[in-house]
Measured scan of single mutants.
Amino acid sequence: MIIKINGKYYKIKKIEKNPNGKYTITTENGKKYEFKNVKIFSEEELK
């Protein structure tokens, strides 16, 4: 799965839903981001 952050695309390693309704997304390079609204892309959609 792929996520778009600030115009760049990252591969997703893990998605966790937090009790506060936000999502914590861990990218393949180990960085964590927290979002309220998340749009996930499949690799097929990006081709």
Results as ranks from 00 to 15, higher is better:
Met1Val: 09
Met1Asp: 04
Met1Ala: 07
Met1Ser: 07
Met1Ile: 11
Met1Thr: 06
Ile2Phe: 15
Ile2Gly: 03
Ile2Leu: 15
Ile2Trp: 15
Ile3Pro: 00
Ile3Met: 07
Lys4Thr: 06
Ile5Phe: 05
Ile5Val: 10
Ile5Tyr: 04
Ile5Pro: 00
Ile5Asp: 01
Asn6Ser: 08
Asn6Arg: 10
Asn6Cys: 12
Asn6Ala: 12
Asn6Phe: 11
Gly7Met: 05
Gly7Gln: 07
Lys8Tyr: 08
Tyr9Trp: 14
Tyr9Ala: 04
Tyr9Pro: 03
Tyr9Ser: 05
Tyr9Ile: 08
Tyr10Val: 12
Tyr10Asp: 02
Lys11Thr: 06
Ile12Arg: 00
Ile12Glu: 00
Lys13His: 13
Lys13Asp: 06
Lys13Gln: 12
Lys13Thr: 14
Lys14Glu: 12
Lys14Gln: 11
Lys14Ser: 14
Lys14Arg: 09
Lys14Met: 12
Ile15Ala: 03
Ile15Met: 06
Ile15Leu: 09
Ile15Cys: 10
Ile15Tyr: 03
Ile15Gln: 01
Glu16Arg: 05
Glu16Asp: 06
Glu16Trp: 04
Glu16Ile: 08
Glu16Cys: 11
Lys17Gln: 10
Lys17Thr: 04
Lys17Arg: 12
Lys17Asn: 05
Lys17Ala: 07
Asn18Ala: 11
Asn18Trp: 09
Asn18Asp: 08
Pro19His: 10
Pro19Gln: 12
Pro19Cys: 10
Pro19Tyr: 07
Pro19Ala: 12
Pro19Met: 12
Asn20His: 05
Asn20Trp: 04
Asn20Met: 05
Asn20Pro: 04
Asn20Asp: 12
Gly21Leu: 02
Gly21Asp: 03
Lys22Pro: 03
Lys22Ala: 14
Lys22His: 13
Tyr23Asp: 01
Tyr23Thr: 06
Thr24Cys: 06
Thr24Tyr: 10
Thr24Gly: 02
Thr24Lys: 03
Thr26Gly: 00
Thr27Asn: 02
Thr27Pro: 00
Thr27Tyr: 04
Thr27Gly: 04
Thr27Lys: 01
Glu28Lys: 08
Glu28Leu: 14
Glu28Ala: 13
Asn29Lys: 06
Asn29Ser: 12
Gly30Pro: 00
Gly30Ser: 01
Gly30Trp: 01
Lys31His: 11
Lys32Asp: 05
Lys32Gln: 13
Lys32Trp: 04
Tyr33Trp: 09
Glu34Tyr: 13
Glu34His: 09
Glu34Asn: 06
Phe35Gly: 04
Lys36Gly: 13
Lys36Ile: 12
Lys36Tyr: 14
Asn37Glu: 13
Asn37Lys: 12
Asn37Thr: 14
Asn37Ser: 13
Val38Leu: 13
Val38Glu: 04
Lys39Thr: 14
Lys39Val: 15
Lys39Ile: 13
Ile40Ala: 06
Ile40Asp: 06
Ile40Met: 09
Phe41Glu: 06
Phe41Tyr: 12
Phe41Thr: 08
Phe41Met: 10
Phe41Val: 13
Ser42Asp: 09
Ser42His: 11
Ser42Thr: 13
Glu43Val: 03
Glu43Trp: 05
Glu43Phe: 03
Glu43His: 04
Glu43Tyr: 04
Glu44Asp: 13
Glu44Thr: 08
Glu44His: 10
Glu45Cys: 15
Glu45Lys: 07
Glu45Ile: 10
Glu45Leu: 10
Glu45Tyr: 05
Leu46Cys: 15
Leu46Gly: 08
Leu46Arg: 07
Lys47His: 12
